[in-house]
């Protein structure tokens, strides 16, 4: 039962030209979508904005309606301690569990830090992490 650990991430396609991010940001604002964490991956000629938002289901529907290319992807979130070595602790567990990370990014504020990452089979990865005693965050915890 790993379903509750699946964090819905929105991925948005961005044309590689000045002003495109602002256009996407304006759409997010118009739809009243708040982002908890995001990153922008750039490749040759285009970019992908990946974001963890409040109410991803509603955000997905509203952005799609606006003609924006958006996709829902399951990622995994795990808490990190916000001090030197924090990443090492979790990365070691993930590595030892033989899980290959496709990409990842982090969020931190005064109280907590979270690591969001995508793997090929999120459900299998969550099971492995839980089995070795790793804490995995649910949607309500982030």
């Amino acid at each position: 039962m790993t379903e509750k650990y699946m964090i819905k991430q929105l991925s948005i396609f961005i044309n590689n030209e000045p002003g495109r991010l602002a256009q996407i940001a304006a759409a997010l604002k118009e739809c009243n979508i708040n982002m908890k964490a995001f990153n922008i991956a750039e490749s040759s000629g285009f970019g992908v904005l990946r974001a963890i938002v409040d109410d991803p289901g509603r955000a997905y529907r509203e952005l799609s309606k606006k003609g924006i290319i958006v996709k829902e992807t399951n990622v995994i979130a795990i808490p990190m301690t916000d001090r030197p070595g924090g990443l090492l602790e979790v990365a070691k567990v993930i590595g030892d569990a033989n899980i290959n990370i496709e990409y990842g990014y982090a969020y931190s504020d005064k109280n907590k830090a979270s690591f969001f990452f995508r793997v090929d089979d999120a459900s299998a990865a969550v099971s492995k992490l839980l089995a070795v005693g790793m804490r995995v965050l649910t949607e309500t915890e982030i």
């Binding site: 992908v48 799609s64 290319i69």
Partner: peptide, 18 residues
Amino acid sequence: EMRPEAFSDKIDDMLKLK
């Protein structure tokens, strides 16, 4: 112009399409 269904969150897939 890509069709929405063709968009993948994986950069690799997009590069393959290109």
